[in-house]
Structures are given as C-alpha cells and as structure tokens.
C-alpha cells in the first residue's frame, strides 16, 4: 500500500485531501465518514455576528461557478460552543478559517480561537482591509506580512495563509507571509468575476461581483502553486478546480504537499473519498511508495522557457 501521509509543518495528515473553506460543513457527515479526510477545514468565521450578501448568491458559468456568499457568521462564541465540539469526535485535524477587518483584529481573534481541538488556523486575507481603503490584505505583501506577524505573536497554532489569485504580486505576497511566520500557504481563493444575463441585462449575482471557482480556475491556481512552491520553503497547499485524481496529481507535481477540494463537492458530494481511493491506486500503478515522490517533480524541459514571453 502506498503511503499517503503528508506533512504540513508540524501537522501530519493521513492523506493530502481536505476540503476548501466554505464548501464543507457538518452536514457532509450525512454523506460519508468525515474521518477519511486528511483534515477538516471550516467556513471562514468572523469574531462578531455577520450577515451574508443578497441573493442570488451563486450562478453557473461555463465549467465553473460564481459565488457572492460573503461571510455570514454566527460569531466566535457560537462557533466555539457548537462547531469545534462537533469535530472533536474525529481524528482528522481541525483547521479553522478566520477573517477580520484589520491586522490587530486578526491577532485578537486568533488568540480567542486558539483552543483545544483546533489544530491550525487558516487566515482568509481575501477580505477588505479597513486600514487600506478596503483593499484586500492578500493583494499586497505589506498588509499580508502585517496580519501574519501580529497573529504569529498572538497564537502558537500553525498559521496557513490563504492567498488570492487577484494579485499581480503572487511571489512577493507568498514570501511576505513566510517571512512573517506563516507555517503554510494555501493557493488559492476564488478569482473576482462577474456574469450578466444578456436577455435581461441584469447582473446574475445579487452582489454584482463574486468569486470564480471550479475547473475553469485550475490553470491559474495551479500556476500560483508552482510559483509559490519554488519561492518559499514552507509547505504549499493547492486549491482551485480540483475534481479528478489527475487534478490532484498535477498540483502535487507542481509542488503542493496537499490539496483542498471545493466546488467539486457541490457537483458530487462523494468527490473527496473517491479522490483518496483513486490517489492510492494511481501511486501504486506508478510504482510509487509515497506521495512525497511526486511532490514538486514537475518536468521543466528548459528553464529558459519559464522566462520566455507568455503574453
């Protein structure tokens, strides 16, 4: 049997497959045994109660979807009393995703949620920074570094910085997160997008703009994974458009130590357990004894190509 375990800093995951924040919740336990997963990652929460965006909150575009769910949150207290205990019944490590309006708020919130039962904190920095004219933290290395640095001094838990594909400074943001003390990177969140109904002339999301996810996002987030894995020495977790075992292999080969599955769970709620089985089979067929053998093994025929024109 091939060894599926993978290491994300101090955490050992029994396999590299875990859910993406916002596409997973307790209800999935009605479909399959959640303990088969490498980790559990919860929907982003904020410290206080918060409403989401107007409906329609989702729409489909060719081979992908847009969402403008926002971050409806019942607040930290409710989460700690209800959600954290639910996952205590499982062996898989619990990763909780948090968001806040400023670096100081991020730090205070990280401290509050550093409780027994939580194995790591995923930092959703794709939200507006009130101290930077509402520009998302993840757009620039400076604010990204600030958030991670302040959180680093507020908690001992591993910090996973979730990057955004909306920035042109992918490598700089990744390196800023690493320098500030992040334990891993997640590449990436959704890409800002829009859809219009040509018949009615109306925007198809209640919030006008929303995040693109699903297969159409994959080439972009796969590229980010590759860029980040080469630019930092902390583990990179790939995310974006994964629905088949080939997608998983591509991310591992690009340099990811684990992957997150999001939208595919909406299309087929049994995607993750299926991918775990298929990954094991695929490794065996390739005569590989562990996932480690694949990670970062991308075959670049000629280094110069990566510097060649691409526009």
């Amino acid at each position: 049997m091939a060894d599926l375990t993978t290491r994300i800093g101090a955490l050992v995951l029994k396999n590299p497959i875990m859910p993406a924040s916002g596409t997973f919740s307790e209800e999935l336990a009605e479909v399959f045994d959640l303990d088969c997963l490498g980790a559990h990652v919860t929907k982003t929460i904020t410290q206080g109660k918060r409403a989401g965006n107007p409906v329609p909150r989702v729409c489909e575009v060719n081979g992908a979807m847009l969402n403008s769910i926002g971050i409806p949150s019942k607040g930290a207290e409710w989460f700690l009393q209800n959600t954290v205990p639910f996952y205590a019944d499982y062996d898989a490590p619990l990763v909780i995703s948090i968001s806040a309006n400023s670096a100081d708020e991020f730090a205070r919130f990280a401290e509050e949620v550093s409780v027994p039962g939580v194995a790591a904190i995923e930092v959703n920095i794709s939200c507006p920074n009130v101290e930077d004219h509402g520009k998302a933290f993840a757009m620039r290395p400076g604010p990204t570094g600030d958030v991670i640095r302040k959180m680093r001094s507020a908690t001992d838990l591993p910090l996973w910085a979730k990057l955004s594909p909306n920035t042109g400074e992918v490598v700089e943001v990744a390196q800023a997160a690493e320098a500030a003390g992040a334990d891993a990177l997640v590449t990436a969140n959704t890409m800002l997008a829009m859809a219009i109904d040509s018949a009615t002339g109306r925007a198809r999301l209640g919030n006008v703009m929303g995040g693109l996810s699903g297969p159409a996002l994959k080439p972009i987030t796969l590229r980010m994974t590759y860029q980040c894995a080469r630019a930092v020495s902390i583990p990179v977790i790939g995310c974006g458009g994964i629905s088949t075992v080939d997608d998983v292999l591509e991310y591992l080969i690009a340099g990811a130590r684990a992957v997150q599955v999001g939208t595919a769970t909406f299309i087929s709620p049994t995607t993750m357990p299926r991918l775990i089985g298929e990954l094991e089979q695929e490794l065996e067929e390739r005569g590989l004894t562990s996932v480690d053998a694949l990670i970062g093994s991308v075959d670049i025929a000629d280094e110069a190509i990566t510097l060649a024109e691409y526009a």
């Binding site: 307790e26 009605e30 409403a51 965006n53 926002g70 409710w78 209800n82 794709s126 919030n207 049994t270």
Partner: peptide, 25 residues
C-alpha cells in the same frame, strides 16, 4: 469580501446531523 448589504443574520447548522442519510446514486 464585500461589505454586507443585508441586515438579516444567516443560519448555521443547528442540530447534529443524522449519519449517512443522504446518498449519491
């Protein structure tokens, strides 16, 4: 994430769900 436009707070999972009652077939 964009600022919230609606005043109503959203629900979150309530009771612990029953196991494996939903199937994909």
């Amino acid at each position: 994430m964009p600022a919230s436009l609606c005043v109503v707070s959203d629900s979150a999972p309530t009771a612990a769900p029953v196991r494996h009652s939903v199937n994909e077939v």
